[in-house]
Amino acid sequence: MKTKNIMIVGVGGQGSLLASKLLGRLLLTRGYDIKVSEVHGMSQRGGSVVTYVRFGDKVYSPVIDKGEADYIVSFELLEAARWTEYLKPGGKIITNIQQINPMPVIIGAAQYPEALVEKMSAAGIDVDAFDALSLAEQAGSAKAVNIVLMGHLSKNFDFTREEWMQAIEQSVPAKFLELNKKAFTLGAEA
């Protein structure tokens, strides 16, 4: 199988590492070669963060480059817009519509762009935007946005619900299992 590329983007602290951990566990059960690249250290502190997930018969590079991503899963709208160039022709952006102001916007040095979903669509980008934060809160915690997004992403793959659930069980603490299963389901149904 040709290598598939998923980018998970967001704001440092939003929980993208758990999402990539979950995907890694899921893909390993199918016997794929996998590479998952993460960001640690300084850039995690509320900055723009990106995780690369690649899988296929043989994966070489640990990173996804411009024009290569099959899917970009974004925790935040501005971050989806930031990384569009990484999407490959025919690729798809799945994004939470939540907006978090970056420091240049907070201090008035820049504006948060308006109507980003429409602008991305107008540029010819396939965007699937939805309110993952509300669904996460409905599931019981705003922190479950990552699992809601994974639920929504799952609609694009042929993994069974059981496979996803097994991966969630391996990735989240037992006491948050039910909450996360619910978050996944809400995301998958959205």
């Binding site: 704001v11 440092g12 602290g13 300084m42 850039s43 995690q44 502190r45 509320g46 900055g47 723009s48 480059d65 411009k66 024009g67 290569e68 991503a69 501005l78 971050e79 817009a81 930031r82 569009t84 160039e85 990484y86 999407l87 490959k88 022709p89 690729g91 970056p102 420091m103 240049p104 916007v105 040095a109 820049a110 504006q111 948060y112 762009p113 980003l116 602008k119 991305m120 540029a123 010819g124 980008i125």
Partner: peptide
């Protein structure tokens, strides 16, 4: 040569790391 993606013409404000 390799594939290229679509960059938005919109200026995207940077998101540098900040104190929490």
């Amino acid at each position: 040569t390799h594939d290229a993606g679509i960059a938005l013409s919109e200026a995207i404000p940077p998101r540098p790391p900040v104190m929490c």
